[in-house]
């Protein structure tokens, strides 16, 4: 059991092309910091100084964490976390 983390296309370069990776339960920010140990560089793309960057949203299941407990939102085994950045191609 683990947390399922969906990696968006623009960040898949950092996860060897994987669109889904496993994360560890805990707060959202600790999950991201742990991901960064396995996928160096992903942490600073997603967060800055412990805060999620303003052009990226994190969803716990389908809920925006800004309207839960933000970076401190607790994530459990079997939860699904989606990282959704703004994309701009047309």
């Amino acid at each position: 059991m683990a947390v399922k983390v969906r990696i968006p296309t623009p960040l898949q370069k950092l996860t060897d092309g994987k669109d889904e990776v496993e994360g560890e339960p805990g707060t959202v920010i600790s999950l991201i910091n742990n991901l960064d140990k396995r996928f160096p560089g992903i942490g600073e793309r997603i967060s800055e100084g412990g805060k999620i960057r303003r052009f990226i949203n994190i969803y716990l299941n389908d809920e925006d964490i800004r309207f839960l407990q933000n970076e401190g939102t607790e994530v459990k085994d079997d939860d699904e976390v989606s990282i959704v950045p703004a994309i701009a191609g047309g």
């Binding site: 623009p10 052009f55 949203n57 950045p85 703004a86 701009a88 191609g89 047309g90």
Partner: peptide, 19 residues
């Protein structure tokens, strides 16, 4: 949804990425 655009270079640009 997204409060502001990413600074240049933080996310890959669509122009150089293929589609």
């Amino acid at each position: 949804l997204f409060e502001e655009p990413p600074p240049h270079g933080v996310l890959p640009s669509p122009q150089g990425a293929g589609l």
